[in-house]
Nucleic acid binder design. Structure first.
Length: 582
RNA sequence: GCCAGCGUAGCUCAGUGGUAGAGCAGCGGUUUCGUAAACCGCAGGUCAAGGGUUCGACUCCCUUCGCUGGCUCCA
């Protein structure tokens, strides 16, 4: 298909989805004549429309709305467009407060409306010619949504639908959703016994079970090794600090709603840390610094606590206590760009090591609420941009999405199913160096203010694990797998040999379990398979006699019988190389 | 936090006003087996918590907690 044909098709799809949303609105209007209409755009995979209704919708309503929509589609009602003055539009939408608000905000005096059947909407289009062109669709969910995304405004009821050019694509999409459900890290987290969140502990506070902890240790060891290689120093810092520290840093003022309430310690107020930066700054400031020792790169797997509103918590991706793979770089202005580039290279290396080939890079600019001067923001934003361009990395601008203390580069990972995950982030900060008076002595013998970078290359251990689980569908590559091999004796009399194999493998650094229950081998294989253990090592009479093991891979490849040493050698090679194919 | 839905055994789920059920997991036996589920038995629940309506509540109502799907907000 040519590029233009592709564009035509996606434009057609978009038009059709948008029209589907209008047809849904017409269906809702016929069922609820007093409906007040919000907006109803086409979105990725489908469409939605927001309504103010006399009562809450139920899933049964979706069925009747869908039936009504099919009727409208079958009747082939035409979509017609008309331009009119705002005055006329106000008359048409006299009993539609949300539409009136939109009319008032449009810049031109002439506005566009679309009609189909009994439904009229303020809309610039385009639409399909006839409702008949809307083919494969399905209403999916009902949700609450604030009018114009503003939580101080009324909450409307939103109906989401998916729509495609034909039934086959719709089916494929619904199937994809189902597959995604099987990879859900919350489900796999329990099934693979990686982590849990206990109500007795509190929502948003994760418990890492032994297997999750093993995966984490592998990630952390790799992370630490790479950071030491790249010239970072590793730190440990406490979890609480005096409130005054956060007043100096500006968090008290700018970040208060995300911090847990203070606690009283012998008359002094302390809070749980929402960030690691002030601690690293204190280490930097523990002595006088020369320009010669810059850049200083401090890295820490730092656990922070942030208050998140209950409705936003989600599995391991949105929690209230989490460990950032944090680092702060203290450098001179002239070192900033090369430091940023170094971080971007490290990010790329980390991402490919963990098997993420696709990611989107976003450059976030100054938000409404910010610290520092306009000039400083412009300069830092420009340096981030130059670093991205120098490395030839494609990126998009995310206007106003920077943090209060500086612009940032965010990396959004794409997992195996194309979901995006906010992971690595690189943030320039000119708030803290000023507030904490972070300096170095320059060549000229005078004090100069430091330039500070905050960055993570994974994001947080919690979110990154969630992302890995979903990316691999729980089947971690060998090097990351919490249990890399399980030894399966065929009968009880092979248990001793199996045990010996297990001990040898453990000693060789391969995470191994042995299944000596008096169960049939088939059951043990099935369970190991469901646990997605990379290697099942079956041992019976033949293996014991020849001092070998029968290697079954979870991929179902043909099994091989090898000696223990050969197995250790190949397994350890794959582990050492961090082979993501295995 | 907001809107809607949900909460029954460790897990997955039946049960709609009249004495709480199944499969898997667990435990006890029997079986000793060659690449994805052997067989028999046993035990397991303040039906999320608290309050109310009722002769009687898992079931209806209210409150709280938690979860799910969204909205808003973020590593």
């Amino acid at each position: 298909m040519s590029t233009t044909a592709k564009e035509d098709k996606s434009e057609q799809l978009r038009k059709m989805r948008h029209s589907a949303s209008h047809i849904m609105a017409e269906a809702v209007q016929s069922l609820f004549p007093d409906t007040k209409f919000g907006i109803g755009p086409a979105i990725e995979n489908g469409f939605y429309y927001d309504f103010e209704l006399p009562r809450s919708l139920t899933p049964d309503d979706l069925i009747s709305i869908e039936a009504k929509m099919k009727e409208i589609i079958k009747n082939g009602v035409p979509f017609t467009q008309q331009d009119m003055s705002k005055k006329e539009a106000r008359q048409i939408f006299a009993d539609q407060p949300y539409k009136l608000e939109l009319v008032d905000e449009l810049p031109d005096d002439t506005v566009s409306i679309y009609r189909q059947g009994s439904f009229t909407d303020l809309c610039k289009g385009p639409h399909v010619a006839s409702s008949r062109e809307v083919r494969a669709f399905k209403l999916t969910t009902i949700a609450g949504a604030y009018w114009r995304g503003d939580e101080t405004r009324p909450m409307l009821q939103r109906i989401y639908g998916v729509a495609f050019l034909d039934r086959k694509q719709l089916k494929a999409h619904l199937h994809m959703i189902e597959e995604a459900g099987k990879r859900d890290h919350r489900k796999l987290g329990r099934e693979l016994d990686l982590y849990s969140i206990s109500n007795a502990i509190g929502p948003g506070l994760a418990l890492w079970h032994p297997k999750g902890a093993l995966v984490r240790r592998t990630i952390e060891d790799f992370w630490k090794d790479e950071h030491l290689k790249k010239g970072y120093d590793l730190l440990y810092t406490p979890h609480i600090a005096k409130s005054d520290l956060w007043k100096t840093s500006g968090h008290w003022e700018m970040y208060r709603e995300n911090m847990f309430s203070p606690m009283d310690v012998e008359g002094q107020e302390y809070v749980l840390k929402p960030m690691n930066c002030p601690f690293h700054i204190m280490i930097y400031k523990s002595t006088l610094r020369s320009y010669r020792e810059l850049p200083i790169r401090y890295a820490e797997l730092g656990t922070v606590y942030r208050f998140e509103r209950s409705g936003v918590l989600y599995g391991l991706t949105r929690v209230r206590g989490f460990t950032q793979d944090d680092a702060h770089i203290f450098c001179r202005r002239d070192q900033l760009q090369s430091e940023i580039e170094g971080i971007l290279e490290l990010v790329q290396y980390m991402m490919s090591s963990f098997g993420f080939e696709k990611y989107d890079i976003m450059l976030s600019t100054r938000p409404d609420k910010y610290a520092g001067t306009l000039e400083a923001w412009d300069e830092a934003t420009e340096i981030l941009r130059q670093a991205l361009e120098h490395l030839d990395l494609p990126y998009e601008i995310d206007p106003g999405e920077g943090v209060f203390y500086g612009p940032k580069i965010d990396v959004k990972l794409r997992d195996a199913l194309g979901h995006t995950w906010q992971g690595p982030t690189i943030q320039v900060d000119f708030n803290l160096p000023a507030r904490f008076d972070v300096n170095y002595i320059g060549q000229d013998g005078n004090e100069h203010q430091i330039v500070m970078i905050h960055r993570t290359v994974l994001g947080s251990m919690e979110r990154f694990l969630a992302c890995l689980i979903e990316h691999y569908g729980g089947a971690f590559p060998l090097w990351l797998a919490p249990v890399q091999a399980v030894v399966i004796p065929i009968t009880d009399r092979h248990a001793g040999y199996a045990e010996k194999i297990k001990v040898a493998l453990q000693e060789a650094g391969i995470s191994t379990r042995v299944d000596t229950r008096s169960e049939r081998m088939n059951l043990k294989i099935r369970e190991a398979q469901l646990q997605k253990i990379p290697y099942m090592l079956v041992v019976g009479d033949r293996e014991e006699e020849n001092s070998t093991i029968a290697v079954r891979k979870r991929t179902g490849e043909k099994q091989e019988t090898v000696t223990l040493n050969d197995f250790i050698k190949t397994a350890n090679t794959h582990i050492k190389e961090r082979d993501n194919e295995l």
